[in-house]
Amino acid sequence: MRKLEQYQPEKQKKGKQTGLISVIVTVYNIREYLPKAVDSILSSTYQNLEVLLIDDGSTDGSERICDEYAKKDGRVRVVHQRNGGAYSARNTGLLEAKGDYLTFVDGDDWIEPQMYETLLAAMMEQDADLAVCRYRKIYENRRVDLSTPMAAVFEGQELLAKYLEEDEAWLIQTAVWNKLWKRSLSDGLRFPKSLYEDMYFTIRLLAKSKRSVYLDWAMYNYVCSRATSTTNIGLNEKTFNDLIPNFYERSAFLREIGREDLALLQDYFLYKRLLLFYTAVCRSQDPKKKEHKAFLQQKIEAGKDCYAAVYGIPQASSQEYRKMKLFLKSPVLYRAAMRLNDSFLIPIKVAMANRRHR
């Protein structure tokens, strides 16, 4: 990895914007949000765009809004299809796209005008096949933006490794919407039928990259406040049927490509999550609490033979290993320790930290 502390790619004049960028927007009953998303794309300082609006069987008027944009701007192309879910609409977009470069925008988010010009310029200057930017989190009453002027160039699978570390200082994210890549990078790659289809797609995209560039300033606006958003859904059946299996699938993929080191890193965060899910289920009003507790306990105990390797990686926390050992000894003792930790120890630590900062 090579850091660029103060980096600003050169602006691209309109006459030199020769590479076609396909922006794929999946649309399903988002009439209230869609115009802002599409307007932000069409206002991009990079003008050589193909905007693909994939209407996934909308019934709220979103389909008509798509057609109106196609009539107003020749860069917009609409595909109407029967409702098949987000993964199906995204795959349609990949098949229909004609661009040299590909990206996605969720229909309830919006982008900054310079996003694609900046990402593509950085790719060209650094001879990269993939670019990623930080994003701004949009809540109902606040915005979170930790942008800096820093950038970094990653060789081979270095960006994949950084992504798997889940370090919030590097907002790489599982999503495809804060990334721009050469078309060849995703040739033959499709989204699976899953609520968390990005997890499958992104890890493979990053694994194929030969050189990538990360820009640490927010050019994508991600709306976090929609209650119906997939990412805002709490612990439920999808956690057990889609999310957890996806984590196991990612570990298997990393081993398939010969990255046992990264598979162990992925496993570390998987087992950390399983313990968190177990605690959450125990404290919930889940009607299937007994079933879900048994499922999680079985998954956690099934991995015990590999825990020495998993918790032996440099990124692993000794505290997390102690939690796991306690759980394996007695889930009852583990639950009691977590209640003690949350009720007494954490408040004490927070109070002490506040005193130090006065």
Rank of each mutant, 00 (worst) to 15 (best):
E10P: 02
K14L: 07
G15E: 10
K16F: 00
Q17H: 08
L20R: 11
I24H: 02
I24K: 03
N29Q: 15
V38K: 06
S40R: 09
I41D: 01
S43Q: 13
Y46E: 04
Y46L: 03
L49K: 05
E63S: 09
I65N: 03
C66E: 00
C66S: 01
E68C: 05
A70W: 06
K72R: 14
K72V: 06
R75N: 06
V79K: 10
R82T: 00
G85A: 04
R90I: 01
L94N: 00
K98S: 09
G99P: 03
L102P: 00
F104R: 04
G107P: 01
E112I: 04
P113K: 06
Y116I: 01
L120P: 00
M123K: 00
M124Q: 12
A131I: 02
K137I: 03
I138V: 15
N141V: 07
D145G: 03
L146G: 10
S147Y: 06
F154K: 08
E155L: 08
L159N: 06
L160R: 03
A161T: 07
A161R: 14
K162V: 11
K162M: 13
E168D: 11
T174A: 12
T174E: 12
A175S: 13
V176D: 10
W177C: 12
K182H: 12
K182G: 11
R183W: 05
S184F: 09
G188H: 10
Y196P: 01
T202F: 08
I203R: 09
L206I: 07
K210R: 12
K210C: 01
R211V: 04
L215G: 04
D216P: 03
R226D: 11
R226W: 13
A227N: 09
T230H: 11
N236V: 05
E237N: 14
E237L: 09
K238R: 13
T239V: 07
Y248T: 06
F253R: 08
G258Y: 03
D261Q: 06
A263M: 05
L265V: 08
Q266C: 12
D267F: 07
Y268P: 01
Y268R: 06
L274T: 11
L274R: 11
L276Y: 15
Y278C: 03
C282H: 15
R283L: 15
S284G: 05
Q285E: 13
P287V: 07
P287F: 08
A294L: 01
F295P: 02
L296M: 07
Q298E: 14
I300E: 05
C306I: 14
A309L: 07
Y311K: 05
P314C: 11
Q315W: 10
S318W: 11
E320I: 08
R322M: 06
K323A: 10
L326C: 09
F327N: 02
K329E: 12
L333E: 15
A337I: 05
A337H: 14
S343Y: 14
I346Q: 08
I348N: 11
K349D: 13
V350R: 14
A351M: 10
A353P: 04
R355K: 15
R355E: 13
R356P: 04
H357E: 12
